[in-house]
């Protein structure tokens, strides 16, 4: 390589070091490698040389050209990346501005609790059934061992329709309807709206109940206890419970299940009226009179049933102090769940 060539390369390298942008590099490319570039001009001058000289000089010029070329490519790549980076960084938005995708909605708290209860019982092999909200008196009362003019009717103030049908006061009619259709063994739950003439901060004329029924051979009260204890543990966590004697016309023996108060852990507070317990569900062994009404063999089959109010659980769970809030459709309330 001649001195001239070396100087050219040095000159390029000096200029390259000074290049700060892709445009600078591009200018260098034109200056050295362009149609009238310095290296190009050198190559053009080769024709004037002898064959031997041409060979040696040609090789030398090509060497320079390759060096310049790769140097330009490398710088180009590097500077392009730098420039892109600078450009992207300049695009910085105000990250504190809110997102604009539509907000998510909300399932009603009653639905959320009902879903949870249903999931637990479905995992235990229960199926979910439904039934009419306007019921025949027979299904709501007589078939459940509540004859007309029985004081047990006072337990539930009933809405009557002009057709002499009733708004079901409990989900239990669905037990009867299911048993009329399906032979044992069966494990069912039924969920739905029920209606009673009652209206204050703890009573709504419409609320939701969940009802359960298990019928088979050798079903006992110990099975009832085991099932409900398993449910309560899943729903409320491990806590103390107790079963008290109670009365429901459609079960015998009948019981109510209490759990340790979830607010005071059993110490006694306003919510549990100082007892340390809160009533969570009613239950019992199916009264043989109910089996007779659906023509099940009362000697062969036994069963248990239970029922609970969904609103009550929702109110406990979310700390809702007035049941009417659940049905007021107030978005300021609903959006919280």
């Amino acid at each position: 390589m001649s001195e001239q060539h070396e100087n050219l390369l040095k000159q390029f390298q000096t200029e390259m070091e000074a290049a700060k942008t892709t445009a600078d590099v591009e200018a260098l490319r034109v200056k050295y490698l362009g149609k009238k570039g310095e290296v190009t001009e050198l190559l053009k001058g080769l024709g004037k040389l002898s064959i031997e000289e041409r060979k040696a000089t040609g090789a030398a010029i090509n060497q320079i050209k390759t060096k310049i070329q790769s140097s330009i490519e490398e710088s180009m790549k590097k500077l392009a990346l730098q420039e892109l980076d600078a450009k992207l960084k300049a695009e910085k938005p105000d990250h504190s501005m809110p997102g604009t995708y539509p907000n998510i909605g909300s399932l009603h708290p009653v639905t959320q609790v009902a879903n949870e209860v249903i999931n637990i019982f479905q995992a235990m092999g229960f199926f979910l059934t439904e039934g009419p909200e306007i019921e025949e008196e027979y299904y709501n009362f007589e078939a459940l061992n509540v004859p007309k003019h029985h004081p047990a009717r006072d337990m539930q103030d009933t809405f009557y329709l002009e057709s002499d049908q009733v708004l079901r006061t409990q989900t239990s009619p669905m037990q009867v309807r299911t048993m009329e259709k399906i032979e044992p063994p069966l494990k069912m739950i039924a969920l739905g709206k029920v209606y009673r003439c009652d209206y204050d901060i703890t009573h709504s004329p419409m609320f939701h109940q969940m009802e359960g029924l298990v019928v088979g051979e050798n079903i006992s009260m110990s099975d009832l206890k085991g099932t409900l204890i398993a449910f309560v543990k899943e729903m409320f966590g491990k806590r103390a419970y107790r079963f008290r004697t109670s009365y429901f016309p459609f079960t015998e023996p009948s019981a109510e299940m209490d759990i340790q108060c979830i607010f005071c852990e059993g110490k006694g507070c306003k919510v549990c009226k100082g007892t340390g317990w809160m009533e969570i569900l009613g239950c019992g062994m199916v009264n043989p009179k109910v089996f007779e009404a659906v023509k099940y063999d009362t000697e062969k089959y036994t069963g248990f049933a239970f029922g609970m109010g969904i609103e009550r659980i929702a109110m406990l769970r979310y700390g809702i102090n007035d049941i009417r809030l659940l049905f007021n459709s107030d978005t300021r309330f609903l959006k919280q769940f």
Partner: peptide
């Protein structure tokens, strides 16, 4: 306390 030995 037991669990019912029936499959629905």
């Amino acid at each position: 306390e037991t669990l019912p030995a029936v499959a629905s």
